[in-house]
Design a protein around this nucleic acid. Structure first.
Lengths: 239, 239
DNA sequence: CGCCCTACTTGAACGCGTTCAAAGTTGTGC
DNA sequence: GCACAACTTTGAACGCGTTCAAGTAGGGCG
């Protein structure tokens, strides 16, 4: 774990906050790094806040000064993972203009990136499932990571040579992201060696999606497509 | 099968114990009833094991004699809910032979039954999301409730006049159950008044499913259907 | 320099889910 | 009746996440 924060803390001119003390930010990073390391080494449930504090050389209360709860520490994991996913998707997005290739590449890259955390991800996944939790992929707190992820699928669509119905094209990135959440859900439950069932799911589903997307321009299917898009729209309304 | 887990599990087919002592079963029911009542009144997280014990007039430890954990109390909720769902589906299943009507009726009945528990269901949903949890809808412990639920959707299919591709017909109950899990997932996250977005989702999705199922018999779509069924099969393999 | 203000830090304490050794209760065989 | 074993019940105690009143420190201003 390389300390990425030094550069930021050394500069004496921070933009938004009063640039007076960067000491706190150092402690914050220290606690976060320590926590993520222990999560990886021992698992989430087995890592106590007391252990994190002790290992980081601070008091328990100090961790709560920087993080609202133990769960909030995972948000850092999310953010880093999202960045890794984009990086790992680079080759696939640069290598082909074929929609199916691009989608398959990004999905497999996502699984690659998450693979080392399979067992540990499963245990903290339960936190993410609670709708009111800030860790939920649908929560306001997760929206930066979510938007970044949707952006990744926007790149899949926009960089592809596929001819797509314009109305569908608009919705497709978010729909693909939703599908990706489904894949992650499947992956979390996947106990097969190397999660190969998830790989098969991706390889099998991508051609189907590809064909479905291509069919979206057929005039015969226009009413059906419209109906689906209308359903999505009507379901999205309200709050 | 190997029912060695706790002394608390149903002793229905165990050979050894003399069936004389049913006194424990009374206490077990008392604790369960009290717990579910308090969950409904105060919510899951806000109901403490101490409060359940006090309200039931027993010691905390006694609750743990019959239930491995606070989460295990929810299994009772599951079972009852499943029975209620079937009962509430009666009219819809008796009233029409139209596939869409039957499916819509069963789905709405399921939401009706769960509605009183919406806020509390959301908090216990996080337990269900953990793959290793016995509360997971895919777990071995949940298989009785799961099988019963799949059976409900089998009734939807078998009692309907819809003409369905025979291969699809075989898989359809389980697929509909999976879809039902998706609806529940959506419902848990649905914060609109009376969860009306979930109602709209059902009303919008049912005709689409109905049409899709009807199309399954078209010869042109046979290869596509085969491909989908093959994907399901290939993903199901392994463990 | 010295004082203040505020960002930061502390650790005891709280209530929680859970455990467990001990005690109580009850049916059965002698 | 008695003793024994199995079943049931108890509540103090443990370790956890979390809170909070109290303390510390270091830059800015007089």
């Amino acid at each position: 774990m390389t300390n990425v924060t030094t550069a930021a803390t050394e500069s004496g001119d921070e933009p938004t906050p009063p640039a007076r003390r960067a000491r706190g930010e150092q402690t914050r990073q220290l606690i976060l790094e320590t926590a993520l390391r222990l999560f990886r080494e021992r698992g989430y449930a087995e890592t106590t806040m007391r252990a994190i504090a002790k290992e980081a050389g601070v008091a328990v209360g100090n961790a709560y000064y920087y993080f609202d709860s133990k769960e909030h520490l995972i948000q850092g994991f999310y953010d880093r993972n999202q960045a890794d996913h984009r990086a790992a998707s680079g080759p696939a997005l640069a290598g082909s203009a074929d929609f199916a290739d691009r989608l398959r590449g990004v999905l497999h890259a996502g699984i690659d990136v998450n693979a080392p955390y399979h067992s540990f991800a499963a245990t903290f996944f339960k936190s993410a499932a609670e709708p009111s939790s800030p860790l939920s992929p649908f929560s306001r707190e997760s929206s930066p990571a979510r938007d970044a992820s949707i952006g990744l699928f926007r790149d899949v669509v926009e960089g592809s040579s596929a001819k797509i119905d314009p109305e569908l094209r608009k919705e497709l990135p978010e729909l693909l992201w939703l599908g990706w959440m489904g894949v992650i859900l499947f992956w979390v439950y996947d106990k097969s060696p190397d999660q190969r069932r998830t790989r098969r799911l991706i390889d099998g589903a991508v051609p189907l999606i590809d064909r479905l997307v291509a069919l979206s321009r057929l005039r015969v299917l226009r009413p059906a497509l419209r109906q689906i898009l209308a359903l999505i729209e009507s379901v999205r309304r309200d709050d």
